Amino acid sequence: MKNIRQFLLLIFLVSCSKESGTKSYFNSDFEDTKSSKINLNEFNSYGELMNSIEKIACSDRITNLSFNGVHNKKEIHIFSFCPDKMPVYDPKNRNTIYFEKGNLIKNEKIVSFDSLDYILNKDFKNYGENLNFADKPEKLVIIILDDKNGDLETLKNFLDKITKAYDTIGTSKSLKVMMDNYVEIPPMPKL
């Protein structure tokens, strides 16, 4: 009986150690010297997080954001623009998945989080066949927008869901994530 308990304990420890590693969602050929590491747990609000990401972007670097998933630590590259050097960036809707103030949006329509696996899988495997999904995997961008008081726990849960969905696809393509501040567009004035 003692040997069985020791064996079970050993199995448990081995399985825990496998899950406790860090999983990266970007190609390893990217130069580490061009990225700056930050941890999502270091921030109290989306606004604080975005201030840090923008400072990194203004120094011509990419943010390597780490966060704790359900089973392990995860790292993703966050692309953002320096507010002083903001280019015009307007990707085709089919090449984007938005996470905007807690809503999942595809092709300008709010969709259920239950469809996230399906959408991400279709986007990565579409290669331009269906006009509702990405032209090709390299063009797909996950765009996260929230206001400065945005809830970081909601963001962390979304990042965990998107990385889990990505894991089921079995691709070596990087997961491209862009973050920015949500800007409310005022209604057109009445004439």
Rank of each mutant, 00 (worst) to 15 (best):
F43W: 09
Y46C: 09
M50T: 06
M50G: 08
N51F: 11
N51P: 13
S52V: 07
I53C: 02
I53T: 02
C58W: 01
S59I: 07
S59M: 10
S59E: 14
R61H: 11
T63N: 03
N64T: 12
L65N: 07
L65F: 04
G69E: 09
H71L: 07
K74Y: 06
E75L: 01
H77I: 00
F79L: 00
S80E: 08
F81R: 05
F81I: 04
P83H: 05
D84N: 14
D84Q: 12
P87A: 09
P91C: 05
N93H: 05
R94Y: 12
R94K: 15
N95D: 13
I97N: 07
Y98E: 04
Y98N: 02
N103L: 15
N103Y: 13
L104Y: 12
L104I: 13
I105G: 02
I105L: 06
K109H: 14
K109L: 15
L116D: 10
D117L: 12
Y118P: 01
I119P: 11
L120P: 12
N121F: 13
N126F: 03
N126G: 04
N126Q: 02
Y127H: 11
N130H: 10
N132W: 05
P137S: 10
E138F: 08
E138Y: 04
V141T: 10
L145S: 13
D146T: 03
D147A: 09
G150R: 14
D151C: 14
D151P: 11
